[in-house]
Simulated scan of single mutants.
Amino acid sequence: MGFSLSPLAQQNGFRLEAFDTVGSTNAIALERAQSGDPGRLWIVSKKQESGRGRRGRAWATSHGNLAASLLVVGSFELKTAATLGFVAGLSLADALDAVCPQANIAVGVDGAGSRKEPMQIELKWPNDVLANGAKLSGILLESTQLPDGRFAIVIGIGVNVVAYPEDVPYPATSLAKLGATCDAETLFLALSDAWEENSRIWNEGRGLADIRKRWLKRAAGIGSEVAVRVDGAVLRGIFETIDEDCRFVIRDNDGERVKIAAGDVHFGAVASASAG
């Protein structure tokens, strides 16, 4: 089966460019924007060789994983557009619920046996999706200004479908490792459909309060110890919530509430060992 859009996405004017292998789906989407593409364009691939992660980190994927980028062109402010990362996280979580509802859970002290249980999908601020506590997906937003003064926003979504990186300082996983049989094409079909519902709720930022409520229901780590690396410094405290602008809110060791607009978040043992 090849990549395809859901009927609802097609009905609402979305288009699709699919590749077997690309350098970067985000880069292609940004090129399309500069060439005058009106947006509502998905760029997808099963292998990405020179993608980008947050803060300019290199990111490549194995063949069979999902790399998807959505080009959105609008007149809304960049501050508002930045919240599309939360829309993307919710959309992917909904898609995973639809097509990969269960995972293999190891049983016994030696992990020799397993049983099927519902997959626990959580959202980690700002733009990661976790499955059973390990990173399954990362989301990267990039923007470019257009000649007419508007901005083009590209929402890049990478999902570990068949393989996951092992040389990273945090737990990671893939759908295959979790025992899910969903492939990249099936997951993208569900994602393109789920995006329609969540972007309708977002409504160019007017429905952000509802998106925030939905995101918090799936949030990872609320009430737990957290360390946030911000511009080389590490802030520690308890993760309380995200505020109305989707900033990360912690209660620090002095009892003060601190709002963070950007940073790398670590929970639990990783917060204690890796973020200092």
Score class of each variant (00 low, 15 high):
D20C: 03
W42Y: 15
N65G: 12
I105M: 12
L187C: 05
I105W: 12
R212N: 08
A131W: 02
G223I: 00
A190D: 01
R257F: 06
G179E: 13
K259T: 10
G158S: 09
A163L: 02
S50M: 09
T144G: 05
W42F: 15
W59F: 15
G23T: 10
R40E: 03
E166G: 11
Q11S: 14
D148A: 09
V107H: 08
M1R: 11
R52C: 02
V234W: 00
T25K: 03
A209K: 11
A194C: 11
G74H: 10
A209Q: 10
F151K: 08
R52I: 05
K79G: 13
V73E: 03
A194D: 04
K259I: 04
I260T: 05
S69E: 07
A60V: 07
S24Q: 06
F151P: 00
A88P: 02
V129T: 07
I201W: 10
D97S: 09
S192Q: 00
V228M: 04
K217S: 14
Q48S: 08
W42D: 02
A67V: 06
V99L: 04
G23R: 08
S35C: 10
K79E: 14
R218P: 02
V228K: 00
A152D: 12
G2S: 13
T144I: 08
G158E: 09
P126F: 11
E244I: 00
G39M: 03
N203G: 00
A88N: 01
V230M: 01
L175H: 03
A33P: 03
A176R: 15
D128K: 06
A262N: 13
F188G: 00
